[in-house]
């Protein structure tokens, strides 16, 4: 695992130094001193990432065959990956529909979806909580804390 991390860090450092910083960090042409340039700090961090990656690579090579911590296994990794993919879809969908559906209704749907994704043993309680919790939070944030909670375009709450 340390080896993978080391390789990943070196690749990330190379990507930063060779592509990301030159393309995505802009610097004025009249900077007198390199240490004052907006590019200086990202380059330093990119270089350090490469060095740490090298360190991880070297220590990882020494540890091959033992010492590296192993993650807790699960019964069915394929099912686990599917659930993770569903979670990613849930997050992206929540983020996308939030302006249209409003925070309250999106939260209710996300609550129910997540509760069933984690195979809750209390489905009725989950549905009740999915309705009640976002409403309580809405009442608190909108009417006590005066936060403008997005209402969406379908159903508006008082």
């Amino acid at each position: 695992m340390q080896l993978q991390l080391g390789i990943g860090a070196i690749l990330a450092a190379l990507f930063l130094i060779l592509y990301a910083i030159p393309n995505w960090v802009s610097s004025p042409s009249n900077v007198r001193n390199i240490v004052l340039s907006p590019l200086f700090w990202p380059y330093i961090l990119g270089g350090l990432t490469g060095l740490v990656g090298l360190g991880l690579l070297l220590t990882g090579r020494q540890r091959i065959g033992g010492g590296a911590p192993v993650n807790e296994p699960i019964d069915d990794p394929r099912q686990g990956m599917l659930r993770l993919a569903a979670m990613a879809v849930l997050m992206v969908a929540s983020f996308r529909v939030m302006p249209w559906l409003g925070l309250v209704w999106t939260s209710m749907l996300a609550f129910v979806a997540l509760a069933f994704l984690v195979r809750t043993r209390h489905p009725a309680a989950a549905v009740v909580c999915a309705v009640v919790v976002p409403l309580i939070l809405y009442a608190f944030f909108a009417h006590v804390a005066s936060v403008a909670i997005p209402q969406g375009e379908l159903v508006r709450l008082p």
């Binding site: 809750t120 043993r121 209390h122 309680a125 939070l137 936060v147 909670i149």
Partner: peptide, 24 residues
Amino acid sequence: PKRILMPMVLVLCIYGVFAVNNNI
């Protein structure tokens, strides 16, 4: 129960983070 608590945490986090800057 943790499988009810986690969806609650998710919803609480969504509201909490939104409320800081009113920004989705």
